[in-house]
Amino acid sequence: MYKIFLSLSLLLLSACTTVQPWDKDLLAKPSMALVPSEIDNALDEHIYFSKEASMGGQGVGGGGCGCN
């Protein structure tokens, strides 16, 4: 049972592959951005920092960009 699980996981992990730079066209679409509006998000982050002294937990910097 354990061996079946192990071999199945190894098989599935072989599907992990690097995405080539030229295949990132869908990632570059605005609908794929991690935050809907970057400027609003930056303002929200500042408000949270000012009110709560908290940082982070928002989108990843530069995330979703298909170029790099």
């Binding site: 080539q20 730079p21 030229w22 295949d23 990132k24 298909g66 170029c67 790099n68």
Partner: peptide, 15 residues
């Protein structure tokens, strides 16, 4: 098909 791109190899766009 990115045939030539594969030949040259790249890390990001543009290269």
């Amino acid at each position: 098909q990115a045939n030539v791109a594969t030949l040259y190899g790249m890390e990001g766009m543009p290269s």
